[in-house]
Design a protein around this nucleic acid. Sequence first.
DNA 1: AGGCGCACTTTTTTT
DNA 2: AAGTGCGCCT
Length: 657
Amino acid sequence: MSIENLLGELNKSQYQAVCMPAQHALILAGAGTGKTKTIVARAAFLISNGTHAGRIQILAFTRRSASEIVERVRMHLGDEAQALRASTFHSWCISLIRRAPKVFGCPGYSVIDRDDQGQLFKLVRGKVKKTDLPTAGELCGVYSLARNKTQSLDTTLKQELPDFYPKIDKIAEIMMAYEQRKKERHYIDYDDILDVVAQNINGSEKIRNWVSSQYDHLLVDEFQDTNPLQWKLLDPLKDDVNLFCVGDDAQSIYGFRGADFQNVHSFSTRVKDSTTLKLQENYRSTQEILDVSNWLLSQSPLNYGKNLSAIRGSGKMPTLHTFSNEWEEARWIADDILQRKNDGAKWQHHMILVRSSFAGRAIEPALLAKEIPYRFIGGTKLLESAHIRDLLSALRVVANPQDEIAWMRFLGLWQGVGEKTASKIIEKTLNLQGDDKVLNLLKQEKKLPDSAAEAIEAVMINRHNVSGALQAAFEVMQKMLAEKYRAQDWDKRKRDIKLVEKLAEKHTSILGFIEEYLLNPINSSQVVKKENDDIVTISTIHSAKGTECETCYVVNVSPGSYPSSHSLGDEAAVEEERRVLYVALTRAKDELIVTRQSRNTWAVRDDQKEEAEPETYFLNDLPPNLFDEVMHGDAPLVIDRKAPGGGSVIHVGIDLG
DNA sequence: AGGCGCACTTTTTTT
DNA sequence: AAGTGCGCCT
């Protein structure tokens, strides 16, 4: 395929955006209006007009969309696009840091994920009741949000945990202790990865020039989900690099991470000489699907000014199914997919969208029972699962002997060693230089079984062969791990470990391996199934952003879940929930199937029933002409015939008192 | 004192 | 699936 073919596929506004001269631009693109296509074509256009592919950096939100964009450009241009790079903000920044670690002041630092960050907060917080101080997790959340929004602790604490505001001095102290400890132990957390780069390019002209001289164009996807910290990365580069930002404020669903659609709304004032273009024609879905989506947004007190209309015209009516519980819901979805498959559809034309990875718990067994092949995007990540972390802790302490969190985990695995004993041992090991000394000390520890030192020694011998190190460590630790997880799917966990060994095969650096899979996380169902296999996709809505599918099941759109009872009382949070549902609905190309449960036992408990406010359920006041409704099982009915103009439609609501 | 096992809750969303 | 609290053991 050629660039001409690609340009020929564009409509007038897309063409205008793609072929724009080198300048700053903001493309406001509604759902399904060809955002990805526009970015792909823009990159291809720039390259075929003489820009070297290596001088274009694409910033996307997930690794999945990043690699899809690059793949598509390469499909059109071939070798010419070889040097094109697409990354997430985090992987882009880490690659800059790794290219000049001393410049950024963190040579040889280990990246820690949210879990480790929480562990470190736990250490510096000490044992205090959770009524006296926020939990380690909460502290972690406030700390991270303040940094991503580039705002003070004062402001953030007031917004997030107002009850603890009087304790702000103590909390500030803990946060400073966290930063101190982090520095001593040579850790960088996720926010540091962005902040280190942002501070340096804002603070040093030399470093800014070094970065900006590498690029002519930055193409930013999902711009509505960038936060102030990320803007702090883009802003200083705009004098030398052209920004091409694509986004949709109706799809902003990362507020919990500090996303700020001021980045969209203020673009034209912040960036001088910039052009704003709109893409409004939806190519993805049928009109019936867009009618539901448009209606949902129209119910918002915010004015999104969105009214998508379908180029494809009319199609099938969306359906709304009510079940009495999540198991029936899951079973029916599995049956429905199976039936469609038997009628000639492909597995890959089905996507199941869930709000939380936890919500997949009923779906997965239902698909497994019917032998439907699937992958779960956004589920528990391989490197986040307990057994893998256990094993990796042995590698981490060898790679970075200062890694206190990994030491705690590793030492605590062994019989007879708990928090206190582990801390005492760590106190001694942290000051030691050299493998031999560390090994000797471990061997001398009375409370520590011999296997612990053996595991560490095995890793030391294989330290430049990550897969070998994993195998050697596993050999020594297997018995202990099997005992620990004997009642918890040990066989499955064992398979995960083999999988990680396989992933590590090409890696010669422990830290490099861990870093890559922390920043580009995958879960086991993604590793097992090959990329292009014909399989069903289960995805969290957040992970499904930017994707589409012929038939979409949006699961558990029940009262208490949409909006989540968590967000009640916070209007901004409720609006974000609405956008989450909007994103889910607009993924569907041909068929939209919304399911819900009438007995949502964990979301609406008996003692809360009286307080639940039915008017905050997004599907209340649902006009009867938008969906075909089906009741299943013994789901209780509330018949409501006040529906306007509504012939014989039964409006199904859930009686919440 | 420190560690262990059992019963219990409690789940947003992600780099 | 993992964190918390509690009682019991070494």
